[in-house]
Amino acid sequence: MIKLGYVYILTNSSKTMLYVGVTSDLTKRIRQHQQKVYSKSYTAKYNIHLLIYYETYALVVDAIKREKEIKGWSRSKKEKLIKVKNPNWEILCI
């Protein structure tokens, strides 16, 4: 079975923190962040749960490669990526 992959970027309510992640089930994963299922995680600790950007890939392995690429970027470069699809950093619903 081939799984889709998603790379996503979350922020907190003050938009001071960014988190880049990868998943095969975006809706479920965002819900986990929002509910702080992993209570000791970075995102739970800093209340990072607002979806502001995502990309979809036909294969999860491609999403993993892209996540690693984006994680290596500066904050400025990540902000530019977000602004291409979401210039006002609106919270996305999925």
Rank of each mutant, 00 (worst) to 15 (best):
I64H: 05
I91Y: 08
S14N: 15
L18I: 07
M17Y: 11
L4K: 07
L26K: 07
S39N: 08
S14R: 10
E90Q: 13
I48R: 01
K80W: 08
K40F: 10
K65H: 11
N47D: 15
T43G: 08
E79R: 06
K78T: 15
K45V: 04
R29L: 06
E90W: 11
V22G: 02
W89D: 01
K3I: 01
L10S: 02
L50H: 09
L92M: 10
Q34T: 09
Y54G: 06
R29T: 11
A58R: 11
Y38D: 07
C93Q: 14
K78G: 01
Y53E: 05
M1R: 11
E90A: 13
M1V: 14
I2T: 14
R66G: 04
R29W: 04
V61I: 13
R66P: 05
S13V: 07
R31L: 10
V84P: 01
Y8S: 05
Y19C: 06
K85Y: 14
L51W: 03
K80H: 14
K68W: 05
Y6H: 11
L4D: 05
K15R: 15
V7D: 03
K85N: 15
K85D: 13
S41T: 03
L26F: 03
S14W: 07
N12G: 02
K28R: 14
C93K: 12
L50S: 10
K83P: 05
T43I: 08
V60P: 03
C93M: 12
I70Q: 03
I70F: 05
K45Q: 12
A58G: 08
M17E: 13
W89G: 00
M1W: 13
V22D: 03
N88Q: 14
P87T: 09
K78P: 00
A44I: 07
Q35M: 09
I48L: 05
Q32E: 15
I82H: 06
R75Y: 14
N88V: 10
S24A: 07
S24I: 04
D25M: 05
L51F: 06
Q35G: 01
Y6G: 02
K45R: 15
K3L: 12
K45I: 09
Y57V: 06
D25N: 15
I82M: 02
V37F: 03
T56R: 08
S39T: 09
L26Q: 00
I70V: 11
A58N: 12
W89F: 13
G5M: 04
K85W: 13
E90H: 12
D25K: 13
T11P: 02
V20R: 04
I70C: 00
K77F: 06
L4E: 08
I82K: 06
D62Y: 10
Y46L: 15
Y42A: 10
W89N: 12
V84W: 00
C93I: 14
K83Y: 08
Y38I: 09
Y38R: 11
Y8E: 04
Q35D: 13
E67F: 05
A58K: 11
Y53P: 00
W73F: 12
T11Q: 00
I48Y: 02
S39H: 11
Y57G: 01
Q34I: 10
T11M: 06
G5D: 01
C93E: 15
K85P: 05
Y46E: 08
K3C: 06
G21C: 00
K77Q: 15
V84M: 07
Y6I: 07
R75G: 14
V61T: 13
L81R: 10
H49G: 08
I82G: 01
Y46M: 06
S24G: 10
K28F: 07
A44H: 10
V22S: 01
K15Y: 14
R29M: 08
L59E: 13
L4H: 06
